[in-house]
Amino acid sequence: MTRNLRARDIMTAGVTCVREEQSLLDAARMMRDLNVGCLPICGDDQRLQGLITDRDIVVRCCAEGRDPASVRAGEMAGTLHWVDAEAPAQEAVDTMEIHQIKRLPVIDVGDGHRLVGMITEANLAKNLSDEDIAEFAVRVYAAN
């Protein structure tokens, strides 16, 4: 990254969470209504518990013959990676590359570990050089 950007500078703010006790059907409807492919999962304490993607719902629920109306979002939480809002934006890119992920929650550690945004490929495309975008794509998509 050519500028001294922080994760907060490149994220999309105003992220909506699905609560861990809500069903995957609720999560799917929220994704549809918000026009997103991923939702953070938040617990009763409003803290980030995980992420759920539209692909998770299809592959880990529907394709397994489970009813999305009876599976709780919290059951899909999985491994969680995040970045501090004040961290250099390059740290977010590095985390996404290392873990081969396309979305990264942004947490404000100084404000009680509150979820403040999400970094996606679209955010990177707006803030990285063409060369950096190509490198990201190779590391995330071609490394498998």
Rank of each mutant, 00 (worst) to 15 (best):
Val36Glu: 11
Ala77Asn: 05
Ala7Thr: 06
Val18Pro: 05
Asp44Cys: 01
Asp94Ile: 08
Cys42Gly: 06
Asn127Trp: 09
Gly65Val: 03
Arg19Cys: 00
Ala73Cys: 07
Asp33Asn: 11
Ile101Pro: 01
Ile119Arg: 05
Thr120Ile: 06
His81Phe: 15
Gly65Thr: 06
Gln49Glu: 14
Thr95Ile: 14
Gln22Cys: 10
Arg55Asp: 09
Thr79Gln: 11
Val140Pro: 13
Leu124Asn: 03
Glu64Met: 14
Ala63Gln: 07
Leu128Gly: 03
Ala122Gly: 11
Met1His: 06
Ala27Phe: 02
Ile119Leu: 01
Asp67Cys: 04
Asp111Ile: 00
Ala13Tyr: 07
Leu51Lys: 10
Cys17Gln: 05
His99Val: 05
Ile10Asn: 09
Asn35Lys: 15
Val116Tyr: 12
Arg66His: 07
Arg3Asn: 04
Ala122Lys: 12
Met118Arg: 02
Ile119Val: 09
Leu104Tyr: 13
Val109Glu: 12
Thr16Ala: 12
Ala77Lys: 14
Phe136Arg: 03
Glu64Ile: 00
Ile57Ser: 10
Ile133Ser: 13
Leu39Phe: 06
Gly37Arg: 02
Tyr141Pro: 00
Val59Ser: 04
Ser70Asp: 09
Leu34Ala: 08
Ile41Glu: 13
Cys42His: 05
Val15Met: 02
Gly78Asn: 10
Ala7Val: 09
Val15Pro: 01
Val140Tyr: 11
Gly78Arg: 07
Asp54Thr: 09
Arg8Ala: 14
Gly14Cys: 06
Leu25Trp: 07
Ser23Asp: 03
Asp54Val: 09
Pro105Gln: 07
Leu104Ile: 05
Cys61Asp: 09
Glu97Ser: 15
Arg114Cys: 02
Asp54Lys: 13
Arg3Thr: 10
Val83Lys: 12
Ala137Phe: 04
Cys38Glu: 10
Asn127His: 15
Gly74Phe: 04
Asp45Tyr: 09
Ala63Tyr: 01
Val59Cys: 08
Leu51Tyr: 11
Asn144Arg: 15
Met76Trp: 00
Gly43Phe: 12
Gly110Arg: 01
Ala73Gln: 00
Glu86Asn: 15
Ile101Leu: 05
Glu91Ile: 10
Met1Arg: 09
Val71Lys: 04
Asp108Tyr: 13
Arg6Asp: 01
Thr53Ala: 03
Ser23Asn: 02
Leu24Ala: 15
Glu86Met: 14
Leu115Ala: 11
